Simulated assay, not measured.
Amino acid sequence: MRTPLCILTTLFLLPASADAGLDFLPVACEGTYPQHLQGVCTDGKGAIYWSFTTRLVKTDLGGKVLKQVDVATHHGDLDFHDGKLFVAVNLGKFNDPKGNADSWVYVYDADDLACLAKHKTPEAFHGAGGIAFHEGRFLVVGGLPDDVNENYVYEYDADFHFLKKHALAGGHTQLGIQTAAFADGSWWFGCYGKAKTDAAPAKPPILLKADPSLTKVERFEFDASYGILPLGAGQFLIARDGSIPGKGRTGKLTPAVADERRGLRFLEKH
């Protein structure tokens, strides 16, 4: 018999961070959407924000939709800071060796999802796909061509003045880094995998974990490519993308914990 999630939480974990404003329980986003989930974040109070590529969605902590707006394709991963949402956006090509991306960070009011500003980030050469904020700086991540054996992270100050390009010594990942978050003293980066084909073997999804300076990088096989939502004390809600035939894409959050051997570990079958 499967152990209930509430018992697992009691056995293995400290209480979730009060700053996160979320219980350590699964959350399903209400509704279906035309495109797949790209990322999630929370305001630490009463809302979760979901990016579905062409739709920004604000829900309560139980997943009930409070507000949604149509947005340009491709809106990627997002982060909350100072009452605003910051979303990595690429209006051009992803993963193009010649850099034909059109990379931006769009800023939205976290209350009503009104667009407040747009910051061009051309340094994200292969397409801006994810963003995270920590200690006065934004990190922007994104696409990667097939033959490049390191991922790139682009650092900006709070006003989006470019500071530095970081090369992560974690090896190649499928289409680059998709999601980013800072938690428990480390940067966490989620990357896609690839299904097996007749021409090529399967590639597992990859999770990269880096120290604050982005110089020490660990590599794990774990799928956090649709969103990483830290709760503190080694607890996370990891986004999962799904679909309902004939209706559209769905999103949910599944509890996971930090694990030295596996990077992150889900607490229940998902």
Rank of each mutant, 00 (worst) to 15 (best):
D198R: 13
E155P: 02
E221C: 10
T250L: 06
D146R: 14
K247M: 08
T9D: 15
T53K: 13
D223S: 06
A18V: 12
V89H: 12
L116I: 12
V65M: 09
V217M: 05
E260T: 03
T54R: 08
E268S: 10
I238A: 04
D19Q: 13
I244H: 09
S186F: 11
D70K: 06
W50F: 15
S243C: 08
G129M: 10
P245L: 03
K164T: 09
G248A: 03
E150V: 10
M1Y: 09
L113P: 05
K67Q: 12
A256N: 11
R249M: 12
K84C: 10
I177T: 12
L208Y: 02
Q68R: 13
L175I: 14
L22C: 14
D112W: 12
G92C: 05
L267D: 05
R2T: 11
P230G: 05
D159V: 03
C6S: 13
H161P: 00
A181E: 11
P145R: 14
D112A: 14
T197D: 11
F189I: 02
P212K: 09
V69S: 03
F220L: 03
R240P: 00
K98C: 04
A88T: 01
F162N: 00
E123Y: 09
A114M: 14
I131W: 00
D184P: 00
D43F: 11
Y154K: 04
G251V: 04
